[in-house]
Design a protein around this nucleic acid. Structure first.
Length: 618
DNA sequence: GTAGGGTTAG
């Protein structure tokens, strides 16, 4: 009777009585090695004291141990491999695994050279070989190599293996060829949860969120029960779609199916609810999370900031600090974003110092957020300092500083930086052009503005949006080219919105065009019947033209219509607390003193006669 | 011995 080969070899190691005791102790010795250095020493001892032990078994053992080290040495592994007379596929697999793993970066060439070698030696790759290689192709986005490997997989008849199929799908998916991933999926004889999840993720990562959801529902119809990994991806698709109804439905599904509520799922749920605009429910999920980590807090902070709830975002940050959770770079980007929009320069500076002190990853995200914060908080020089200190700048960096400079009236500087962008290989986008057109507008550079507007689509394929048309109307209008501004609106291929008409109304005000203003006003009221902005601007135009009766009539109409008032609001930061001042607001502490001071300022200004005839300070 | 997860800027 004979045992199968693998079985008999199992018997010989290391318990059987006829095992060579020397070999046995050597195995133990090798197992205790912690580095290539130690391994080499033991190896040297073998060669010196007992050359008969240089068996295939021992060498295989040495390789498998050295592939498990923290800092493996490829040249040593290679030298051992050359001494093994007939290395089998398992040895090659473990070496390829080593060079496709996280321990060895940028070593995909080495992994592939070992693959080449095993083919040359006439060995057959198996279902363990390809997942490693495909993972490498995926990580280095090497589509061509991946396709070649796909060919080998087919030739070797390994498409039946789910690991091979799934890594193939993932390779195509991260290389951006989702069609090929779908094809592998469709043609596979077998699928599992992982296959479905990879397919869904492929669509979602490409931004095809609806497709991702569609595949998810197909998965449910095929009676696969999603786990938490799948749900994280599906929820992120929901978040991007901003579809609250869908999000709620999927949350219910998760409760029904009793999907494990781990910290990943919790974080994604929080993010989904915030991006879909339900901050209340996001908070509820957040509070009920049994385990939170820094990402959970980040999701709340940046999510609230994205919703415009900047104060809430900052109070979340304070709570986080009170709980002793250490902020990371993502946290601070969210905090800086909130500072920028609240004008909280002091807190922003504190964050800046915190980044320097605590060795926070000061990458583009942090740099861009700092530039934006300083610019929006009025410290354009500080913004410029950060901008200059940044080694890596992208379109966000340039846009932040260009918009910042434009808002500070430094149009020429903004335009200079804009002209620098092509030289740095950075393409502007729609928001950059808003800054550029604003800059032109503030400096009164009509021709330059026209040129940039035309170049948007010609050079960068950017279709002008209403905000760009609005900027152009503003630019022409300020320069007194009212007729042209009007013609410009008429020539628009898209429907002009309130922003565009508002710009024209503003121009009418500057140049006292009452009749045109009345026409524009009508358009504005049609688009935004509930807002008071147009009425106020119009009544100012009447007053400037000394048409007091018309102004009064308009104010009356406003009151009758009970328009939604957007109160003028300003804020200052004192000792880290933001004080907001709304028009007509008496809820502040020290209201009396504030109004007394305000009256003094008003009479002071009036005495200089500069502001007579306007009601800017009423 | 092999495959799938969350948050960030203008």
């Amino acid at each position: 009777m004979s045992f199968p080969h693998s079985f008999s070899s199992f018997l010989t190691i290391p318990h059987a009585s006829y095992v060579d005791p020397q070999q046995f102790s050597l195995f133990r010795r090798l197992d205790s090695c912690k580095s290539t250095q130690e391994l080499k020493q033991v190896h040297a001892i073998i060669i010196k004291t007992n050359p008969s032990l240089q068996t295939r078994l021992i060498y295989t053992k040495i390789i498998s141990i050295s592939t498990s080290f923290h800092d493996p040495d490829p040249s040593y592994i290679n030298s051992i491999l050359t001494q093994i007379p007939n290395p089998d596929i398992r040895i090659y697999n473990s070496i390829i695994r080593l060079f496709s793993g996280p321990k060895t970066k940028n070593n995909s060439l080495i992994a592939f050279s070992f693959y080449q070698e095993l083919l040359v030696k006439g060995l057959f790759p198996d279902n363990y070989t390809y997942p490693f290689l495909l993972k490498l192709c995926a990580e280095s986005r090497a589509l061509r190599e991946g396709q070649e490997i796909h060919g080998h997989v087919v030739k070797n008849g390994l498409v039946w293996d789910l690991y091979v199929v799934n890594t193939l799908m993932r390779m195509y998916s991260v290389c951006g060829v989702i069609v090929a991933a779908q094809k592998v999926f469709d043609e596979s004889p077998d699928r599992d949860m992982v296959s479905w999840t990879i397919l869904i993720q492929g669509y979602v990562k490409m931004g095809f969120w609806k497709e991702g959801i569609r595949v998810f529902s197909e998965m449910c119809e095929a009676n696969f029960q999603a786990d938490e990994m799948t749900m994280v991806i599906v929820l992120s698709a929901c978040a991007n779609l901003g579809d609250l109804v869908l999000g709620r439905r999927i949350h219910e599904y998760m409760l029904e199916q009793k999907v494990n509520f781990d910290v990943f799922v919790g974080n994604t749920l929080v993010d989904m609810y915030l991006k879909c605009g339900d901050a209340g429910f996001a908070r509820k999920v957040f509070n009920e999370m049994p385990v939170k980590n820094v990402v959970s807090w980040n999701s709340m902070i940046s999510g609230l900031a994205q919703q415009g709830e900047f104060k809430e975002a900052l109070s979340m940050f304070r709570k986080m600090q009170n709980r002793g959770v250490k902020p990371d770079d993502v946290t601070l980007v969210g905090v800086l974003n909130s500072c920028a929009n609240l004008g909280m320069l002091e807190l922003g500076k504190w964050v800046h110092a915190y980044v320097d002190r605590n060795r926070i990853k000061a990458d583009r995200f942090i740099g861009n957020a700092l530039v934006d914060m300083y610019a929006k908080c009025g410290s354009i020089d500080e913004a410029f300092k950060v901008f200059n200190g940044m080694k890596l700048r992208d379109v966000y960096t340039y846009t932040a500083i260009i918009v910042g400079l434009a808002m500070h009236g430094q149009g020429e500087r903004a335009l200079n930086l804009f002209s620098e962008m092509p030289k740095m290989g950075i393409e502007p986008d729609g928001v950059t052009y808003v800054g550029v057109l604003m800059a032109c507008s503030h400096v009164g550079l009509v021709e330059e503005g026209r040129k940039h507007f035309a170049e948007m689509s010609r050079l960068y394929n950017l279709e002008p949006q209403t905000e760009h048309y609005g900027c152009m109307v503003d630019l022409l209008g300020r320069a007194g080219l009212i007729n042209e501004a009007e013609e410009f609106i008429k020539s628009m291929p898209i429907e002009p919105d309130a922003f565009v008409w508002g710009a024209l109304l503003g121009a009418c005000r500057i140049h006292g065009k009452v009749e045109l203003a009345e026409i524009v006003m009508e358009k504005l009221v049609k688009i935004e019947p509930d807002r008071d902005g147009a009425y106020i601007l119009m009544s100012n135009i009447y007053s400037s033209a000394n048409k007091w009766r018309d102004a009064l009539k308009l104010r009356k109409e406003m009151n009758e219509r009970k328009l939604k008032k957007t109160p003028g609001c300003s804020s200052i930061e004192l000792d880290g607390v933001v004080h907001e001042f709304r028009k007509g607001d008496k809820t502040q502490r020290n209201t009396k003193e504030v109004y007394i001071l305000l009256d003094q300022m008003k009479s002071h200004l009036k005495s200089s006669r500069q502001w007579e005839g306007t009601d800017e300070f009423s």
